[in-house]
Design a protein around this nucleic acid. Structure first.
Lengths: 232, 232
DNA sequence: ACCTGAACACCGTTCAAGT
DNA sequence: ACCTGAACACCGTTCAAGT
């Protein structure tokens, strides 16, 4: 028997009405899969089964789209919970931030693009500063610590792509190629680098462990100077 | 009297022959002035007084152009000099790296783009690891410290654009706008953030000083754990 | 209120041709 | 060896029009 399905919506397909959140989520998904360069307004619209211009009802332009996507990443970061002490709270939140930025590798490079942080970004930093203030840190120390931890996480994620310790020969080969020199010449030019890289290739390199070690150095440093900052 | 000037080069203007270095330098200059989005192959070629396609004799494509530009930024960073002790050497090199990335704000966001570091990048990190190894750091500790310091500098430069403590009202206003809420509502939503930002607006915020404070926390932390790492 | 279609100015890059 | 000119497929975004 014939069903009277989607009669009155024949010209437009049976698809949920678009809204801003759906556009942003689709953008994040595509950027995860294709990288930022692969994410164009046209590709995004196609992914949503819509004509390119339809997007402009929900985001002002591509820049605003990217800002919204970045804030969606911020929404995945858990707020610090001072219940288990400031140190553990900051550790958890830093790990959570790194996880989010690792899931969405395109995001860290775009953090700088806009001057105005989104609401989720603000919510996150409000919680961060609340945690520190409630734990007895001074105004200035609160900013110092927030700045320090964010910088470390951003930078570490950035490095995960830059330095490729996993494939040291590749780095050496690439270096040789750019200078059109033989590999032996490269080895002579960067002796310390190749020695360290070679040693690590044997021992293995674990980004998670590296991140944790650096983070603990930071938190210990913060603890040491906490007293000093409280006076100032 | 008529001079026999540039007779045989009439069709092509009296301009120095193009070479790769000149292309990269022009690219850096334009990116500094116009931002990365403003730097197109066509704009760059026009800046050099040449047709767009002429660039492709000197750089393979735009990606390779950007990689070359990033490596040019690395060439501005001074190598650590272990003569005054590893701590001072690392401090100086970190300040130098931050200065370079601050002069060329577009660079930090592009550090991640390519998997293969350029020769100047390799030279820098070779010197970095040489300084640490010669100062008695273990292989693993050398990587820890390098990773930690680079991450901090990258992240700090990124933050210089992200958080705008200079204009706290602007942030609040923007946040209110995105949620189409009144400013009072924003104040209620981010009480800690606004309190801290307000306090800092009064006291003043100096990025150079902030950077130095965080850097010292890091270096002190490294010094503390140096012994531990030497054993492992 | 939301979506469409055609168009505009621009982009990176190719190819074949010039000198 | 180096530069040019015309062309291709694509981009973000506008405008006026549809429902």
């Amino acid at each position: 028997m014939k069903e009277p399905v989607d009669r009155q919506q024949l010209p437009s397909p049976r698809r949920a009405r678009l809204h801003r959140e759906a556009v942003l989520r689709a953008g994040v998904g595509l950027a995860d899969r294709l990288g930022l360069d692969g994410l164009t307004m046209r590709v995004l619209s196609q992914d949503l089964g819509v004509v390119p211009m339809a997007l402009y009802k929900h985001v002002a332009n591509k820049q605003e789209l990217l800002e919204g996507m970045v804030d969606l990443v911020w929404s995945e970061v858990t707020e610090p919970d001072a219940e288990h002490g400031w140190k553990q709270a900051l550790r958890n939140r830093s790990v959570s931030l790194r996880d989010a930025l690792t899931r969405h590798r395109w995001a860290v490079g775009r953090m700088e693009a806009s001057g105005r942080p989104g609401p989720e970004n603000l919510r996150q930093h409000n919680a961060m500063m609340g945690c520190l203030r409630e734990s007895g840190f001074s105004f200035r120390a609160t900013v110092h610590v927030t700045s320090l931890l964010d910088a470390y996480v951003y930078g570490f994620v950035l490095q995960q792509k830059t330095l490729s310790f996993e494939t040291p020969e590749e780095s050496a080969a690439a270096a040789a190629a750019t200078r059109n020199a033989e590999p032996e010449e490269t080895a002579a030019r960067y002796p310390y680098l190749l020695e360290v890289v070679g040693e690590l290739a044997k021992e293995g390199y674990d980004y998670d462990a590296e991140f944790a070690v650096g983070l603990d150095v930071l938190l210990d440093g913060v603890e040491l100077l906490r007293g000093t900052w409280r006076e100032g």
